[in-house]
Design a protein around this nucleic acid. Structure first.
Length: 232
DNA sequence: GCGACAG
DNA sequence: ATCTTGTCGC
């Protein structure tokens, strides 16, 4: 069987693989009771030479208003071997993310990933790809749009506008443009694996703290970019 | 041919 | 993604 993250694939083969894998992604809710939520993100060091994957595991539910307890953290660094190509991001980031996950002692029931879920040209963004490989429910939380069209979401936290794109059978909703914080540019939420859009949006909103990004992704972002110690 | 383009 | 200081605003 072809590995889900074979980085020795040509762009054409990678695209064909994504089309096949997209058929395995589950778009309906199927998640175990949540007690641990993971945040995943990838950063780079030394001008991109080194890929740095970070996973942060938070306890659910939070102790207070957006006050999550960090249960565990894991970082994995390795030489970067793939360039960034729009639409093929998972081949560049998933291998390192998997290595970071292997370092965890706790197994989360849900993971929020920095990037798109099914809001992808072939409906297999990095969040979906990772969820499929880890056999875990995942949600994609991106800061920018990759594909699809949308209107402007309302001004209040939690307001969202559907992200739609044309598919084989016509127009389909692939994600939500969510206002995670008043007066701030919205984030792009899309199901990764094993949950529907409404459930994905609900979890992201439930994980919001005071900032634009939900806590799992925000903390993983800081760890991946070593912003947690880079302060001086 | 001309844009658009997750991280 | 990353390179980077101060600055405006709640």
């Amino acid at each position: 069987m072809t590995p889900l993250h074979d980085w020795n694939l040509s762009p054409t083969e990678a695209i064909a693989l994504q089309r096949r894998l997209a058929g395995r992604v589950e778009h309906t809710d199927r998640l175990a009771p949540v007690r641990r939520i993971a945040g995943v993100d990838i950063g780079f060091e030394q001008g991109g030479e080194i890929t740095r994957a970070a996973v942060v595991v938070l306890a659910w539910p939070p102790a207070g208003e957006g006050r999550f307890e960090v249960v565990e953290q894991a970082v994995h660094r390795e030489p970067t071997r793939m360039p960034y190509v729009p639409g093929l991001l998972s081949f560049r980031e998933v291998p390192a993310a998997l290595a970071a996950f292997e370092r965890l002692e706790t197994r989360p029931q849900l993971a929020l990933v920095d990037g798109q879920g099914i809001a992808h040209p072939r409906r297999l963004g990095v969040a979906s790809h990772l969820g499929l490989w880890l056999d875990l429910p995942t949600i994609g939380v991106a800061k920018k749009r990759l594909c699809g069209r949308h209107g402007e979401p309302g001004p209040a936290r939690g307001d969202w506008a559907p992200l739609v794109d044309d598919g084989p059978g016509g127009e389909e909703t692939i994600g939500a443009v969510l206002r995670s914080r008043r007066g701030v540019k919205p984030v792009f939420v899309s199901p990764g694996h094993r949950l529907c859009l409404e459930t994905a949006v609900a979890w992201v909103v439930a994980c919001l703290g005071r900032t634009k990004l939900p806590e799992p992704t925000r903390l993983a972002d800081r760890l991946a970019s070593r912003r947690d110690q880079k302060r001086r």
